[in-house]
Design a protein around this nucleic acid. Structure first.
Lengths: 346, 346
DNA sequence: GTGAAAGCGCTAACAT
DNA sequence: ATGTTAGCGCTTTCAC
């Protein structure tokens, strides 16, 4: 009877199928369950048994198949991330930090990039098929029905650096948009700028709208009247066009607050190289994020920081949260105003 | 008899376990196999049956579990990527492009970041447990024994933008290091620079060594004698230190070729802001990669391009290659010299 | 074209 | 501490 098994084994195999726990068990002279235990931290197994298993495993080059494990446990230790098409280094740094942290937590990242700024439902659906433990949207959108579905399935859906466009509460981790934009506005006024303008993202972006409203709010409270603004894209090409539009105005703005450092760098270059303006003296430029590049001497950009590490801390809490309590927490991480040369008048 | 099944079902479930093919089958009044076929493109199934299945699936919110599928098929449609700790945007762009392309090919990316520039064996081992179809090393190292193991297991191991440090042939996709560095050298000479220096990466990096040897080779053939050089790190902080070292030399170099645009930008800023040098006229700066930032007016950096799209094309070929023939192909993708202001003397 | 049955490689009771 | 057994959710023969 037992022999039959061996006979039926050799099926087609394109690639030399890797050794299984069974193979190891046979070689080590133990049960297959013992092999499983040997590779499970904290399982009850004798030291000598484990050693024998490990020896055999080593000889065969055995590695536990995590797909099988995930199948049983119902969780994959995989975290899905969707990154919208963007060149903004902020997200790259966040991705790196997150990857490192998850790695230490024994979890891994399944990355998708959403093309064309469209909503990322397709990618998310795909991700869900892998039974990811959590889903992180970094610069991408998702339809409300799909989001609701995630909630029903008990899969934490986390918005990073943005909130959902619709008004429902899902978990999100963002920077301090309102205090940040207000701090920028007050700083510009203090520096004596009197014709500030705003260069922001799309009007249906909650992140943009928070920053925009806060910024304009402070200025209008000071009686500055109508503030010129352009709402374009968060990408470089769009920002360059928008900057030109603003700088061609008569009277020309004497300061521009940009919704992110990434587009602020573009704006600064347009002002300096196309319009020949002396940054700081003739025109103040400010951004948001405090990415590394902002502090480079070429830009020396005033900005409000979104501290990546604390933000990722919060993401980790949400990801590890099994209670399901915080699945709709709106977490705001404080930043700080970074005064630099781009808004220094003297 | 049948009733017993239903009774034994309710085990502990923290999360509402998602509907299975079985559930769908019951609701649709078909066999579980039919459900599988309905979700398998090209499977032999009647149109009406598929429709009934899809209807039921929709109602239950069913999604095939890819972990189970992968378990059976022995392949996961997952491609593992290890990215070494780096802020170099070149890799971010490459990651984005690769993700988009793989997505279209029905494959997905499992990302790891290797910390501290150490070798990434741990991460790779982890990745292998997920039965990835291929493994891509972006700025990370791996030990030779582990690499050999991958080869034995039939898992394509692809080095991106670098070759393995040891002399064995594994698949790699790189830019044209030698022609590129030679082109830079000739260009600097043509522009009349006479005291060129080299600012490169670590001496055990094959990428660095190819560029360095090619660059120095051309200059020495012209009889320029000893070329000052510093081998530091590919990261910004190290590059800044190295640039200072070079610029403090007496006589001061009148041109610096940096092993990547990323460190060239740092060097350019040191020259311009710390040493007050007029870039181009007083000192020529050149990089390698032609990242987007290189063309920004703040840098206007002469460089040799490593075209991401064609490079990813090659990666895709290697990933999809089931023949196992090209597993040791050393693919070099041509680039082009980009002459810009940073090496313009007049 | 469809269903029954046999696993993929593993973990988790349950015995012993 | 260890082996036995029963699946996890799916794909894939194999009959019909």
């Amino acid at each position: 009877m037992k022999d039959i098994k061996d006979v039926t084994k050799p099926l087609k195999r394109t690639r030399p199928s890797p050794p299984s726990a069974h193979d190891v068990a046979r070689l080590a002279g133990v049960s297959q369950a013992a092999v499983s235990r040997a590779f499970t931290p904290g399982a009850s197994i004798a030291k000598t048994t484990r050693e024998r298993v490990m020896l055999a495993a080593d000889e065969l080059g055995y590695r536990p198949n995590l797909l099988a494990r995930s199948l049983i446990r119902g969780v994959s230790d995989l975290v899905g991330i969707v990154i919208g098409n963007t060149r903004n280094p902020f997200f790259f740094v966040a991705l790196e930090e997150l990857s490192a942290r998850l790695s230490r937590a024994g979890k891994h990242i399944l990355v998708f990039t959403a093309e064309g700024g469209e909503n990322a439902d397709v990618q998310v659906e795909d991700l869900l098929r892998y039974r990811v433990d959590a889903l992180l949207l970094m610069s991408a959108n998702i339809s409300q029905p799909l989001a609701e579905k995630c909630r029903r399935d008990g899969i934490p859906l986390i918005f990073f650096n943005r909130r959902p466009r619709w008004d429902i509460d899902f978990a999100s981790v963002t920077g301090a948009n309102v205090p940040g934009a207000e701090a920028i506005a007050r700083h510009l006024l203090e520096q004596g700028y009197r014709r500030p303008a705003y260069l922001g993202g799309p009007l249906d972006s909650p992140t943009n709208n928070e920053r925009q409203a806060a910024f304009l709010g402070v200025l209008q409270a000071e009686g500055l009247g109508e503030i010129p603004r352009v709402n374009g894209h968060f990408e470089r090409a769009g920002a360059i066009e928008a900057a030109r539009t603003l700088l061609r105005l008569d009277p020309q703005p004497d300061a521009i607050f940009c919704a992110s450092d990434f587009i602020a760098m573009a704006t600064l270059e347009v002002a300096r190289f196309e319009f020949g303006l002396d940054i700081g003296r003739q025109i103040g430029i400010a951004g948001f994020d405090d990415i590394l590049e902002a502090s480079w001497p070429s830009f020396d950009l005033t900005t409000y920081s979104q501290p990546v590490v604390p933000m990722i801390d919060k993401v980790m809490e949400l990801v590890s949260d099994t209670s399901g309590e915080d699945l709709s927490a709106q977490i705001v991480v404080e930043g700080a105003l970074r005064k630099r040369g781009s808004t220094r008048r003297d």
